[in-house]
């Protein structure tokens, strides 16, 4: 039996990964669980690849050993694949279907006069991820966020989906409370709806 429940967060700078990590951190602390993270701060530019190692229970190192993370939360689809070495076999992936193409890829697509070069697709990413696990919750997080009434509530959609995972160790209502405590007060209702939409969508995927 593992001594910790480990989550690898992946995304692109500017997507709010640190807030997501802070929300789960608060939820875990409020539920009297030990938390340890290895975060990537530093160069403050947007649009870079970023990650957070988020560990609950009795972890010792701030870094998750390869192949042992119980869950991955990816706010951008290609970033899920970029950090896949951390996920254990059959671990859960909660991911957005959003892809933010890096400019180098855009240049290749634009300058191919025969128009044969295409962007990487979510389907291609998903196919590769399925070699590691079938437990994938692929969310159209932007559409769900808009449905909740605010396109900037994508994080809450993802966190809602996290709570649909059966062995996730924090109670759903504790997580919801942490979300509502940390988002801007004016956006609480939309975030609460986004949370529910994510949880329902996750429940359907994971059964």
């Amino acid at each position: 039996m593992k001594d910790s429940y480990d989550i690898i967060f992946a995304g692109v700078g500017g997507q709010g990964l640190m807030l997501l990590s802070a929300i789960l951190g608060k939820a875990a602390v409020d539920a009297d669980m030990e938390v340890l993270t290895g975060e990537q701060h530093g160069l403050s530019q947007r649009q870079g690849s970023i990650y957070v190692h988020f560990r609950m229970g009795k972890p010792i190192s701030p870094l998750i050993p390869y192949g042992t993370a119980d869950m991955m939360i990816a706010m951008e689809a290609t970033e899920a694949l970029r950090y896949i070495e951390y996920l254990r076999d059959d671990g859960v992936i909660i991911m957005s279907n959003r892809i933010m193409p890096p400019p180098g890829e855009t240049e290749e697509v634009a300058l191919d006069e025969e128009r044969k070069t295409k962007y990487v697709t979510v389907e291609a990413i998903e196919k590769k991820l399925r070699e590691i696990t079938e437990n994938i919750v692929l969310l159209d997080s932007l559409t769900l966020a808009k449905e909740a009434g605010n396109p900037r509530t994508e994080n809450s959609v993802l966190i809602g989906a996290v709570c649909s995972c059966k062995d996730f160790p924090i109670e759903t209502e504790s997580v919801r409370k942490a979300v509502l405590d940390l988002v801007p007060p004016k956006t609480r209702d939309a975030n609460s709806r986004a949370f529910d939409l994510g949880r329902d969508a996750g429940g359907e995927c994971l059964g």
Partner: peptide, 20 residues
């Protein structure tokens, strides 16, 4: 684990640091 991951990532576009 690392070998399998690097095989899966072979065609993944690089995301270099970039100006905002």
């Amino acid at each position: 684990v690392l070998e399998r991951a690097s095989r899966l990532k072979e065609t993944l576009p690089q995301r270099n640091p970039i100006f905002c």
